[in-house]
Each structure stands twice: as structure tokens, then as C-alpha cells.
Amino acid sequence: MDSILIAMILALLIPIYEAWQDDNIWQKMLAFASIATKTSIMMLVISVLRDDWSIGVVAVIILSVGEAGLMLLAHLIKRLNEV
């Protein structure tokens, strides 16, 4: 199971690098969407690994809250340039 988590961390590093090197804000938002999903799935894996219910519940809540926050942020950034 440890090697699976290490592979997940490697997959998480790709969008972090992308968010660092790309200056377009929508590319950064895409990287953020990827990171938000990946971190909450990692939390879920760890909670199942440890058989810990509280972390699992928090992981599912963060999964849905993170996406809601992303949609909100996308709409705000869309309207930035309107007067």
C-alpha cells in the first residue's frame, strides 16, 4: 500500500509543477481542480488504510466542498474583467 501512496504523490506533483510554471490563470485553475480531487482521494485511501472513520467523513466532505469552492472561484475569475 505504501508504494501506491508514493505513486499518488508523484501524480500530485505534476499539477503542482504545472501551477508553478504556467502564468495563465485558467491553467492554474485546472491544476487546482486536479489537486483538489487528488488530495481528497488520497485522504480517503489513508482513512481506509487506517480504518479511521473520522478522516473518511472529512475526506468526502472536502471532496464536495473543494469542488463547490472551485466553481465559485471560476465564476468570480470570469467576472474579474467586467466593469
Binding site: A19, F32, T39, M43, I62, G66
Partner: peptide, 17 residues
Amino acid sequence: LVIRAILGAIAALVYSI
């Protein structure tokens, strides 16, 4: 601010593990 949101997602992962 977008990077701050990424930092928040990673921080939530660290706190929960």
C-alpha cells in the same frame, strides 16, 4: 490566490493524515 487555494488543499491533506 489560486496558489493559495492549492496550498489550502495540500494543508488539509497534511492535517488529516
